[in-house]
């Protein structure tokens, strides 16, 4: 409220393009957003758990009691105990350590693929929404084509062509999410483009670059931020699916999806082998989803009912 320009206060020297930019794009402020988020217990707990998971992934080698491939043939398929809280696998490796070390793989693929989709998708959506006309037509039809392919299958096909491995998994998941970010950004930009402050800035001769970076993007950002959190959830799921199919990281590198695939073969003798890596996936994905819901409530309440049914 205090940010509003006071008309008539500086009649002597009116700076031509400046008063509006300082007034418009400061909303929503980070502190305010974080404060509101902290008041939503589910989102706050999810955020804390996610920070813990990220810390685990960063300090994985310090935190893991054993190395990823430390084998002990005398401890094959041992049930959970104090020494091995998540039991051991068929090579006598500590499942707890491998779940910790797998966090880095899952999160790295998740974050990098969403970062790729975020940058490319937002850029496409921004151009399409801001310029409209044929730019919009060409870019969004391309996105429609990409969107027509089922996500998992498209990712599998991309990895099949480029070869298995984490780098290609990142690319594949990233490409799958580009059209989603493009659509969300475009819709948001279309709403902002005709706002008075954008038109005012344009009328005093602001360049397209300035309009986009100072006015359009900051005000179109909330739905994109929400989409980022929700996409991280599905990127972790997609990474797990690709690893499970043997199209992600290679053995013996620890990866939650790969551990599930291996544990599946021993499900009747050693339930813990498949249960714990799966729980790690569920907790991570659940937290990203809950945080996404919380962010949506805070940043973009109008979208809540619209998007509630389009989770996948």
């Amino acid at each position: 409220m205090t940010q509003l320009p006071t008309p008539g206060a500086t009649p002597a020297a009116p700076p031509p393009a400046e008063p509006l930019p300082t007034a418009a794009p400061v909303r929503p402020r980070w502190r305010e957003t974080l404060g509101l988020l902290a008041r939503n217990p589910t989102a706050a707990v999810s955020a804390v758990v996610l920070v813990l998971i990220v810390l685990v992934a960063v300090f994985d080698e310090t935190l893991a009691p054993d190395g990823p491939n430390e084998q002990d043939p005398s401890l094959q398929l041992q049930p959970p105990s104090w020494a091995h809280p998540f039991g051991t696998d068929e090579f006598g490796r500590d499942v707890f350590s491998r779940v910790i070390l797998g966090a880095a793989t899952s999160l790295r693929v998740g974050f990098l693929s969403v970062a790729f989709a975020l940058v490319v998708g937002t850029l496409i959506g921004l151009l399409a929404g801001f310029y409209g006309t044929w730019v919009d037509d060409v870019l969004m039809r391309l996105m429609d084509v990409l969107f027509a392919f089922p996500a998992v299958l498209l990712a599998i096909a991309i990895v099949a062509i480029r070869g298995a491995g984490p780098a290609n998994a990142i690319l594949a998941i990233g490409i799958v999410y580009v059209p989603i970010f493009a659509r969300v950004t475009r819709a948001s930009v279309l709403g902002v483009r005709e706002e008075v402050y954008v038109r005012a800035s344009r009328s005093v001769g602001a360049s397209d670059w300035r309009l986009i970076t100072r006015h359009v993007l900051p005000n179109a950002a909330p739905p994109i931020i929400v989409q980022t959190s929700v996409s991280l959830a599905f990127a972790v799921l997609a990474e797990a699916a690709l690893s499970f199919l043997g199209l992600g990281p290679r053995r013996p590198d620890p990866s939650w999806g790969l551990m599930l695939a291996d544990g599946r073969g021993f499900i009747e003798q050693a339930w813990w082998y498949a249960v714990f890596p799966g729980l790690a996936i569920v907790v991570t994905v659940l937290c990203f989803n809950l945080l996404g819901d919380g962010l949506r409530d805070v940043l973009d309440p109008r979208q809540r009912t619209l998007m509630a049914g389009s989770g996948r």
Partner: peptide, 15 residues
């Protein structure tokens, strides 16, 4: 349900 990987749920159902 939205957060659980379907293949993990499958393995749990089999278990």
């Amino acid at each position: 349900g939205i957060s659980v990987p379907d293949f993990w749920l499958s393995i749990m159902l089999i278990l």
